[in-house]
Design a protein around this nucleic acid. Structure first.
Lengths: 241, 241
DNA sequence: ACCTGAACACCGTTCAAGT
DNA sequence: ACCTGAACACCGTTCAAGT
């Protein structure tokens, strides 16, 4: 746990860790498109070939970068929290991490078998196991939560790709709302109606509403027999959260 | 009176529609990476510059391709179906469309403001409006369903990126299961335990389970605080309640 | 007005040559 | 063993020149 400070290494030393950290810095500063081997080698004052001594290719580099961010986000979740609260905390932690590093969203949703998603799946699934969710359903439910998370992650990443500054966010939403409003109520009644709510809505609240919705579905379906369940020994969940 | 052999139609005239259809064919045959302007111009027997007379850039081309696929998928949904069944049908329609065109998944999840997602959002949202969902919550709930859909879409696309043939799918899942099993039960108890279920699970069933879970959450929360009385989570819709 | 294709400015990756 | 950087095989996009 405790890392003792060692003497500062020379800056010249190239290591996977240092490469990954610099990659993260580039991604944070300039977004997904900013990370090129040329930008990375310029920052590290070396040649492109040097990177390949520590990392197999760009894919592995991105995997390592995203895993570092996600592991850090999950580390903040207190172990003691009850399942429902823990799942909320995990989802929120990932949401906030993506808000800080939008490029993570794109990688998360486009590489769902990577190490980062593994950590997420485990974190969510183990909390579901602590609920009364039957084992056969744990996989499906964890997958539902995870996919919701990945979908939103991709959405954030996509928006960040064309909206860099925070000030542009409301401008973007207003432009989108105008586009929706212009769609015409006969073909797009729902979007036309919801256009007004678009600029005022809070991303974080909406995200949490979705998490709670799925959690509500989980408690609703695990509690009573879903349909034709003959298991008479199904336990009840405490009605209070 | 037009003679049918009035003009000797040299080659098919280049048009945005024809470009898009050929792009879809290339994408279906070779996946996302196969669509290049060089491959497209070779197929159309023209130069790369000719494409730009009908399409602004590759992004617009992909947008048009994905919209064509999604609109076709949504066209199969009967208008008369009741809300719950319609939402299930929409989600399944998109799922099957992605199964046929895996590249659609990547585009859907990485361009969530595009025309295709607009159609999806409208289709889902308008059905929610037909339920008892209050207007303020319609946006959140439609967004939850949509994000779940996008998350799974990205997952399918990612898998298709490295598993082209259908026979390789089980091999991929078995390799992934072996990887999970090897993770060690002390650090990854959930994944270690679930590894056995991974190869046998059916993607479509699991997808539908997630949709039903969210729908269950919707009925549970719109009906008031979670109680044990909800029962309409399956494909059967009870005519009265 | 539409098409052609060479050319441009990138990109990830490789590899012989250095230390 | 690790680093260097020119070179390679791509890519999307442009544009002067054709029809």
């Amino acid at each position: 746990m405790e890392s003792k400070r060692r003497t500062e290494r020379r800056k010249d030393a190239l290591s996977k860790e240092r490469i990954v950290e610099n990659a993260i810095a580039i991604l944070d500063a300039g977004g997904e498109t900013a990370l090129t081997f040329r930008a990375l080698t310029a920052r590290l004052a070396t040649g492109p070939g040097a990177i390949y001594n520590h990392v197999a290719n760009k894919d592995e580099l991105l995997d390592a970068a995203i895993e570092a961010v996600i592991v850090r986000a999950l580390a903040d979740i207190p172990e003691s929290t009850r399942p429902h609260g823990a799942i909320r905390a995990i989802c929120l932690g990932v949401f906030d991490a993506i808000a800080r590093h939008p490029w993570v969203g794109a990688q998360l949703s486009s590489k769902p078998w990577g190490a980062a998603v593994l950590h997420l799946f485990e974190a969510i699934g183990s909390r579901l196991a602590a609920l009364d969710v039957p084992e056969a359903a744990q996989f499906d439910y964890a997958s539902a939560l995870l996919n919701y998370l990945l979908g939103l992650a991709g959405q954030h990443a996509a928006r960040a790709r064309l909206v860099t500054r925070d000030a542009d966010r409301t401008a973007f939403l207003e432009a989108l709302a105008a586009q929706w409003a212009a769609l015409g109520p006969e073909n797009f009644p729902f979007l036309h109606r919801q256009a007004a709510h678009l600029p005022e809505h809070d991303d974080r609240d909406q995200f949490l509403a979705g998490v709670d919705l799925i959690l509500a579905g989980i408690t609703a379906t695990t509690r009573g027999p879903v349909r034709g369940t003959t298991d008479s020994t199904s336990q009840r969940i405490t009605p209070f959260r």
